[in-house]
Simulated assay, not measured.
Amino acid sequence: MTIAIGDTLPSASFKEKTVDGPVETSTDALFKGKKVVLFAVPGAFTPTCTLNHLPGYLDNREALLAKGVDDIAVIAVNDWHVMGAWATQTGGLGKIHFLADWDGSYTKSLGLDADLSAGGLGVRSKRYSMLVEDGVVKSLDIEESPGQATVSAADAMLAKL
């Protein structure tokens, strides 16, 4: 079953690279008492994710924060080393959270997993964005195709805010 507007995000912990090194962070630490934009990509370093989806959130970070967003996070079914390298290479380290769902278990718990084996990726995440307030999903936009970043793009989220 796919998570829906009005649902509370399930609890989990993630490992992410920070400017101070790797840290464990929890859904409570990320979402409790905050308004957070969470977006997901099928994979770090993949073309649409790296050239289109992530740059929109990095470029619009200040505009999103100005609209009352407390934090921004991206999640992918990759290990924290890959997510950390992606954060560093794209200039996103320290600007947004790069959450590693290394085995896809969190993505599966949301019902947002996708079998992208035909493209050589295996089981990954659907591309989506959501606005989360105090752990509750307030909006959820899922792309029909993993190669698109339109309804889940930063400008679409800005328009909602």
Rank of each mutant, 00 (worst) to 15 (best):
54 L>K: 10
61 R>K: 15
90 T>D: 03
102 W>Q: 14
122 G>I: 11
117 S>T: 15
21 G>R: 03
18 T>V: 10
93 L>T: 07
22 P>Q: 10
29 A>W: 00
70 D>W: 03
134 D>E: 04
51 L>C: 06
115 D>S: 10
123 V>E: 06
55 P>Q: 06
42 P>Y: 06
31 F>N: 03
113 D>S: 12
88 T>L: 12
120 G>A: 09
69 V>C: 05
54 L>D: 07
73 A>V: 10
82 V>D: 06
127 R>D: 09
105 S>W: 10
125 S>R: 07
41 V>C: 10
30 L>W: 03
56 G>I: 11
64 L>K: 06
14 F>V: 02
76 A>R: 02
33 G>F: 03
65 L>R: 13
64 L>I: 05
86 W>Y: 15
78 N>G: 05
34 K>T: 06
38 L>E: 04
69 V>H: 03
58 L>G: 04
56 G>S: 11
99 L>A: 01
64 L>G: 05
14 F>R: 07
114 A>Q: 14
65 L>V: 01
70 D>H: 06
87 A>C: 12
73 A>W: 04
79 D>L: 00
118 A>I: 13
68 G>N: 08
22 P>W: 03
98 F>T: 00
96 I>W: 01
112 L>A: 04
45 F>V: 02
35 K>M: 05
64 L>N: 01
43 G>M: 13
55 P>K: 00
94 G>A: 11
48 T>V: 14
101 D>Q: 07
33 G>D: 11
33 G>V: 06
120 G>E: 04
119 G>C: 01
121 L>Q: 13
26 S>Y: 08
21 G>A: 02
122 G>H: 07
134 D>V: 05
82 V>H: 09
19 V>H: 11
30 L>P: 01
41 V>F: 00
56 G>F: 09
35 K>Y: 12
26 S>P: 06
94 G>C: 07
113 D>E: 13
59 D>Y: 12
35 K>I: 00
93 L>V: 02
97 H>K: 13
123 V>Y: 02
125 S>F: 02
130 M>V: 12
27 T>F: 10
18 T>Y: 08
110 L>H: 04
114 A>C: 06
42 P>D: 07
113 D>G: 05
93 L>E: 13
45 F>L: 04
12 A>W: 12
133 E>P: 01
133 E>V: 15
102 W>F: 12
88 T>I: 11
